[in-house]
């Protein structure tokens, strides 16, 4: 049952930050609410104060400027999915937005809320870690940038300070010869297992690879052993298979009530093989 709360509607990031600093643990940032309100309805969390950052002007903008695609933190998944700029400069980021939850969640839920909530099954989180996106955090005194890979500290835990607001996600177009792919397997609305891969192929060999496993552990993480298995090799048959197998074996897998860790490792290997195959194919056609 949703208990009563007070909602604050700041007009600027600085104002929101000051409110958060003042209210401390009594307050939560409220954007789409698709995760937060569920938690509050289930009685798993209670915040007497919610700070609605959708009232801050410009925080929902999606724009490509100076070679960077900037996704405003309160842009909804639906807005990203349908954004011509996102589709052109980071098609996988747009596509993964279309896979989040369900249509109602995508219409209300925001990219910033999704990342800051740090639910372990986040689709965008896995992709943005693989993509090496940058998260912009702001407070009254200024702002800082954090790479996506350094943002997720644990289940429902991030590097965001209590008085900081995530204002934007910055995504650079992939370099030439680079392809990206994301594969997921979902029994419920949230994936059971997911793998994102970004691979650069130069002169027929893997010049760089980022393999990120999502949904099975507390946070999306790179699997260096799988990346090493690709480095410098021709991305074909046995090489990809071996890397995928390593990803399943080395992934940080948590147990849950629905599936065994054994099955999850199997899924990770399978999804890694699919993601690597697609990323390599895309890399070969990306100039």
């Amino acid at each position: 049952m949703l208990r009563p709360f007070e909602i604050h509607e700041p007009a600027t990031v600085a104002e929101a930050s000051r409110l958060l600093a003042r209210l401390g643990e009594q307050a939560a940032v409220y954007a789409g609410g698709t995760e937060l309100l569920l938690l509050m309805k289930e009685g798993l969390a209670h915040f007497p104060h919610l700070v609605n950052i959708k009232t801050i002007g410009g925080l929902d903008a999606i724009a490509f400027e100076d070679g960077v695609l900037r996704l405003g933190a309160v842009a909804t998944h639906r807005e990203i999915e349908t954004s011509p700029a996102a589709r052109q400069h980071a098609p996988l980021v747009a596509r993964v937005a279309s896979q989040v939850g369900n249509l109602r969640v995508r219409a209300a839920g925001t990219i910033g809320g999704n990342l800051c909530f740090a639910e372990p099954h986040s689709d965008p989180a896995a992709v943005l870690v693989a993509w090496d996106a940058t998260l912009v955090l702001a407070r009254a005194g200024g702002e800082r940038c954090v790479p996506a890979a350094g943002f997720f500290l644990g289940m429902l835990q991030t590097a965001r300070e209590p008085d900081e607001i995530l204002t934007a996600v910055e995504v650079r177009p992939l370099p030439p010869g680079t392809g990206a792919a994301y594969h997921r397997f979902a029994l419920h609305e949230r994936p059971t297992a997911a793998v994102a891969a970004v691979v650069t192929v130069r002169d027929g060999a893997v010049a760089a690879a980022r393999v990120v496993v999502g949904s099975v552990g507390p946070v999306p993480v790179r699997v260096p052993e799988a990346e090493d298995a690709l480095a410098g090799r021709r991305p074909e048959g046995e090489v990809l298979r071996a890397a995928a197998e390593v990803a399943g074996r080395r992934a940080d897998v948590l147990e849950d009530m629905f599936t065994s860790t054994e099955y999850k490792r199997h899924l990770v290997s399978l999804l890694a093989a699919r993601a690597l195959h697609d990323a390599v194919s895309a890399a070969r056609t990306a100039h």
Partner: peptide, 24 residues
């Protein structure tokens, strides 16, 4: 295909529609 109430020592552990999967 989907539906199953899960218990642990007599306690229902998937008592919400996030965790109890119905067809859509």
């Amino acid at each position: 295909f989907f539906e199953e109430m899960l218990f642990d020592g007599g306690q229902l552990i998937n008592g919400s529609l996030l965790e109890y999967r119905v067809p859509t």
